[in-house]
Design a protein around this nucleic acid. Sequence first.
DNA 1: GCCAACGTTGGC
DNA 2: GCCAACGTTGGC
Length: 155
Amino acid sequence: MKQWLVKSEPGVFSVDDLAQCPNQTRFWKHVRNYQARNFIRDDMQIGDRVFFYHSNTDIPAIVGVAECASGPYPDPEALNPDSRYFDPKSTREEPRWFLVDIRLLSKLNQPISLKLIKQHATELGDLPLIRRGNRLSVMPVATRQWDYIMSLQAA
DNA sequence: GCCAACGTTGGC
DNA sequence: GCCAACGTTGGC
């Protein structure tokens, strides 16, 4: 069982949007970045816990807790020539891009802001989210980091 | 709106 | 294989 943090721009797909999906479940985002793809394809497993994070917004913050509701599966949009996510180099036999479904478990009453998380950088140690120039949209979160971040909620 | 950081593309 | 140009991400 692993933990992850995934980013979503609330203007595109917010935690409330996820809450309104059937079973509060939907695929998370058409990733087109290899580092992120590798995490999805190689390491994400059904049942993994997921921080749902709002990026590129007024108050960047973790706004919900979700779980992987599926293992990784090929992104069908990569094969659709009419899709903006079409990739001619992806094939049915050798899919290049993958999706994972996430199910929202709970929306946080009080979001855990990036600002607050940064204030605990020393305790958290290395975390791509608070690394300078970070642009990774999915990243692993160590159990210790997960627990620590969760504890910030009560504070 | 600005801009730093980073990934990708394409000419050579 | 190098690297400049360009596009995107995402905090501020």
